[in-house]
Amino acid sequence: MSETVRDGAPPPPRGRLRTVAARFARHRPAMAGLAALAALVLFAFAGPLLWTWDHTVSGEIPSSAPPGPEHPLGTTSAGNDVLGQLMRGMQQTLKVAFTVTVLATVVGSVWGAVAGYFRGWVDAVLMRAVDVLLIVPLLVVVAAVGGNVRGGTTWYGVALVIAAFAWTPISRVVRGVVLSLREQEFVEAARAAGASHARIVFRHLLPNAAGPIIVAATLLIAVAILVEAAMSFLGFGIQAPDVSLGLMVQHAKTAAFTRPWLFYPPGLAIVLIALVINFIGDGLRDALDPRQAMVRS
């Protein structure tokens, strides 16, 4: 029987994923980051099941109380429990941030790789589209349509809108890398062996561009969190009574000195998520690159 691998990325041989996983496991900061991320996810998604208060206003909650035994992170002036809000906010933020990152990275990488690989008119058309998206400011668009489109108030609506704008920088990075990679002899060797364009793009070009892609993707997570917060402020993102970390910071920005318990928990949570993602990204990049001898030993 003959195995027909026509297009697309064939499944990598079994040993490969395992070696990457083993190398990742040897990367200490990355493993610490992975553990911390797991803790954050657990806190955000399982926490609400265990804690008394959710993110909504309740008459039983005192207004503007500093942290105490009843409310470990204090309360808001309207009567929300900040810990309950933090868990819900982190949940929403993580969902938005990850969806944006995955969508934008996939679309941006493929878009950029195709443009860089084919060059010529394909490149011209694809990259002019990127230029157009880049010069339209996301927040102005959001401000203009925000009042009319209420569908954007769900977390996936927000994620889709952000992702639609956020993939462009990744496509430019990947195009640049692919432009130089495509001139390498191993790409020519694949062509000489009869490889299809799809195979060259997915099997040779994108894996070799993994380093810059992962760096760009980890940066994107932080951007997604901040953009989501800004959109909420403009009335388009996640709206009260629902919360996100960005929205919490936004609301508490005037209270940073008078009621610090409102500002610091969501602020620190954002920093923590970004940091943890960066560590994991570093580990992934090294694990995917067989030339990283330091990781192997």
Partner: peptide, 25 residues
């Protein structure tokens, strides 16, 4: 430059066979 740095030697040598659907055969 002529060998893909992200592939093992066995994958590199097998690639032409896989492209032509001859690997198993």
């Amino acid at each position: 430059a002529s060998l893909d740095p992200r592939m093992t030697v066995a994958e590199i040598i097998a690639e032409p066979l896989r492209i032509h659907g001859l690997y198993r055969e």
